[in-house]
Design a protein around this nucleic acid. Structure first.
Length: 243
DNA sequence: CTCTGGATTAGCT
DNA sequence: GCTAATCCAGAGC
């Protein structure tokens, strides 16, 4: 399989503003599909396109770390939307959430998988996938697919750990972005061809977004609060809980 | 204080 | 398909 879409074309990215993160969490979880996680790392940028998310709805969600209220571990979840909640799990892994909605709600969206867009070599190095003597070779497709296809994998690839917990995503270390598309009024074409086909500036227009139950949830009735791109080879391998 | 199991992954059968 | 690896938050006593 040729992963030609991995060739990174220079494209302007627009950082998502604070207001984006203050919308309803389920809406954000879906809207994040197709957007980008970007980390400034030294003099380069690691970029991944989000292909899988899960919503966690604070105090009313038994599967959420915020279910039992604020604590030392989850305090960042209760900040205002647009912060990064990074937690440590299974004794060795980190996962990153985007905190959403108003301060005090404890809502968040887990980033579960990314399509690597830029910075493969550094991602591979972080993931310990770089063969020592083959630095300049093009990575194998299987390695690219394995870089960010899980919540802990993408954190490792992006070098995200405890130190990034609480990072303001409206800052300049880690942020989320969308493709910068021309505003409606600035389009060149007048489209007077009579077709009447109005093309909307929608970054998700070519994506087949599906939803399912969340992965790895074993307590309570599970909700269909997971969103992913159908058919993407970059989605994680976890299985939805069906019960 | 001790105990349990987890928003996971890699490696093996 | 199964499970070890390895920390620690939260629960229970």
């Amino acid at each position: 399989m040729q992963l030609k879409r991995l060739m990174h074309k220079r494209m302007p990215y627009k950082k998502l503003p604070r207001n984006f993160y203050l919308q309803p969490t389920l809406h954000i979880a879906q809207q994040l599909i197709g957007k980008y996680l970007i980390r400034r790392f030294g003099d380069q940028r690691l970029i991944g396109r989000i292909v899988e998310t899960e919503a966690y709805l604070g105090r009313r969600d038994p599967a959420s770390h915020a279910y039992r209220g604020i604590s030392k571990r989850n305090a960042v979840m209760f900040r205002t939307g647009g912060h990064a909640y990074v937690y440590f799990t299974y004794g060795m892994h980190f996962c990153i959430n985007v905190v959403t909605e108003e301060e005090g709600t404890g809502h968040a969206v887990l980033l579960r998988a990314l399509e690597p867009i830029n910075g493969f070599e550094l991602m591979m190095k972080h993931r310990h996938l770089t063969p020592p003597d083959q630095g300049n070779r093009r990575p194998a497709d299987s390695d690219l697919i394995n870089l960010c296809n899980g919540p802990a994998k993408l954190c490792q690839a992006f070098g995200i750990d405890r130190a990034q917990n609480g990072t303001d995503l409206c800052g300049s270390e880690i942020w989320l972005a969308q493709d910068a598309v021309p505003a409606e009024g600035q389009r060149k074409s007048r489209d007077s061809s009579g077709k009447g086909r109005r093309r909307k500036a929608n970054p998700q227009e070519n994506l087949r977004i599906r939803r399912s139950t969340r992965i790895g949830i074993t307590s309570g009735r599970e909700h269909r609060w997971r969103f992913y791109v159908k058919g993407s080879p970059f989605v994680s391998r976890g299985k939805p809980v069906e019960r």
